[in-house]
Nucleic acid binder design. Sequence first.
DNA 1: CTGTATCCCGAGAGATACTG
DNA 2: CAGTATCTCTCGGGATACAG
Lengths: 122, 122
Amino acid sequence: MSTSPLDPPSGHELLVVRPSKWTLVVVVQLREGTMRFNELRRNMGGVPQKSLSQTLRELERDGFVTRTAYATIPPRVDYDLTELGREVLTLADDFHRFAQRNREAVEEARRLFDAVDARPSA
Amino acid sequence: MSTSPLDPPSGHELLVVRPSKWTLVVVVQLREGTMRFNELRRNMGGVPQKSLSQTLRELERDGFVTRTAYATIPPRVDYDLTELGREVLTLADDFHRFAQRNREAVEEARRLFDAVDARPSA
DNA sequence: CTGTATCCCGAGAGATACTG
DNA sequence: CAGTATCTCTCGGGATACAG
């Protein structure tokens, strides 16, 4: 494997993991600090429980998020970003900012492209 | 829609588009400048033609890539990054660099997690 | 409250064959 | 060379039901 600076991103090693639909959303949600499961869930619109717990488990497994469970009744689990997770957050922020800045430009490009290209009927 | 700085990324507006498996790979490939279809294809390992042309079309549609076709025989099509595309490239680079820096840490975290968690048999 | 276990479904990936 | 057209198949998303 070459270690040159950013040469051939064969496959998806471009990112450490292939992020799921919700991965970055979770990371951004945890910006303000500790959050509980259902708290996250509420703040993320209609995330299915399954998707959220899968996402959280992956993030925990990869060392981006900590999970702290309290053996109380009812149970309580806190999620938080690790140092590494906060680095991901800054990257996500960059993407988010870029998206916000250029949303209109992209939509305009899309309209233009579609206008020229679209040929439903002959 | 709120326009506050990076608040609730409802859904996937976090990114402008949901990138396909190959989107960022193409962008990074075009770092050095103009490239032709099969040239891209060769440099990207085993990308199916379909996936590549789909990816390229989307990138073109969204204004990240220009497509220049020459009516020669045999045909020739050049792909290149737009200004916007080069911005995406810098973002992709950041991710890539991060991935390279922390690949080992993540793999280590994964091993640790799996060692503690994995319980195939009782 | 915080999950796991199922089931279903559509989207995307990939292989293959064919066309301008 | 540069694609399009099909087909298959897997994976992830989403809904629902159940458990600790």
